[in-house]
Amino acid sequence: GLLPPIEINPNEHKLQYAYALWYSRRSPGKQTSIQSYDQNLKLIGRFASVEQFWGLYSHLVRPSELTTHTDFHLFKVGIKPMWEDEANQKGGKWIVRLRKGLVSRCWENLILAMLGEQFMVGEEICGAVVSIRFQEDIICVWNKTASDVATTARIRDTLRRVLHLPASASMEYKTHNESLKN
């Protein structure tokens, strides 16, 4: 259903975009169809100002405290965190694999960079995902145009900078089309 627009008080600091935070959890081992993926996505909340973001964030469990196979998805309002969304159909994502213990700090640095428009790639960013897995954690940044090499390079460089990743850290770019085939 359609949600009402997000109101902002004049004393709050407006963000460039409004965002929605989603949560999903899948049973390990089970194949996820598109339909069940959609049904697993739960909207936690929305915000359009810095103050509203902190109001929501401060009530959340830190990613490192989430159970295995859980994801948080922070996407611009109007873009569902699914390949099938129109904004994602020609897109892709940067994938950063993190050893255990780093995810909460990296996720916070990533979303602050996204909300503060630190990526400087115009309208290209769709959202970010943090995935808690058994042996490692994964964070991803989704963008609209996988074929735009300048944009994907800039996102990679910004990620390295804001996450303080060593040059050796493994980063991989995958188009959503490739992901669909797997």
Binding site: E12, H13, L15, L115, E117
Partner: peptide, 21 residues
């Protein structure tokens, strides 16, 4: 229009403002 850009430190400072809670 102008893009609304916020540095990390600025965002962190607003974390404890009364309207952020």
């Amino acid at each position: 229009g102008t893009r609304i850009v916020y540095e990390r430190a600025f965002l962190m400072n607003l974390r404890n403002s009364p309207i952020s809670r």
